[in-house]
Amino acid sequence: MGEVHTGLLQNSGEVPESTCHELLNLLSGERVRVSRRPIVHAVSPDLLTGVDCRLPSASRSRIRGAGTVLSRSSITGGRVVQGSSHTRIERAGSDRRQPWSHYLARPGVVEVLGKVKARDLADGFAEEPPPDGLDLGAISARFMDVVQTSSLLDRRTPFKIARTKLRWVAEPGEPAITFTLRSDQMRTIRLVHQGEFTPGVVDLCEDLALHDWLLTSLLVIIERARIGGTSATETAVKLAPAVDHLLHLWMPMARVDDALIPFWESLDRRPGFTRQWQSMVDRVRDQLAVRTLAFLRETGGGKAQ
């Protein structure tokens, strides 16, 4: 299970690849990985957080787990930041709490001390964690903060926008995916995959979180622009940041494992991420075209010579 937080990089413009490198260099000696096609995507090294806490449970049973959480920060297109944490929940070999060295040897695994039903755990993941519970969101948020508060950024963003949180759980079985919008900022994914868990699942969830944030943000910008409810100039001014900073970032499945692409495709059929994105992009461009025509008419530049 994991949680991905996504937000706008706190800078006036896009940051170059070299700055991404510096921003994500969270652990000296470890490399920042960068892929350049089809969009620049930089990822920090994985960092471990030790946890010994209560695990989610739909039946509110007190299940204790100990182990480590894997986290990383990433920047896509020099513009969007993500903080992502995940861990695999496994049954412990013995019911006794082991020394930390035992858990450190198994990065990204939390061992359950005592009895647990996988279904009960998975059913409970979407709830807000109790004060003593595993809070992957808090860890992800901190990994985002590290980037967002860097002195390399000027914080003069072209618009203000909320972060979104995507909480996910994956279990083996007959393939299926459910994406749910739980509130303005909270989404959940429940994914059933064939065979063993692979890191590709984390990449898939991060990619879905990124595109869900793009959709959410564009919707907010369009709502703020009040198309038809205010002057065309004001609408155009409000829409401009979307053109400058968001529209080119839509690159679904760029880093998704071939075997997991069917999950993306099924969400693209219904609810239809790309369809909604495309219709909004068209709407923004049409608005700007209409404004340009009006402007030409006002200045007389539209007259035939």
């Binding site: 948020a141 903060d145 926008i161």
Partner: peptide
């Protein structure tokens, strides 16, 4: 407090 202000400034005008 710094974390709170920083996160809210990201989100609100």
């Amino acid at each position: 407090c710094v974390q709170l202000f920083s996160r809210l400034d990201e989100e609100f005008d």
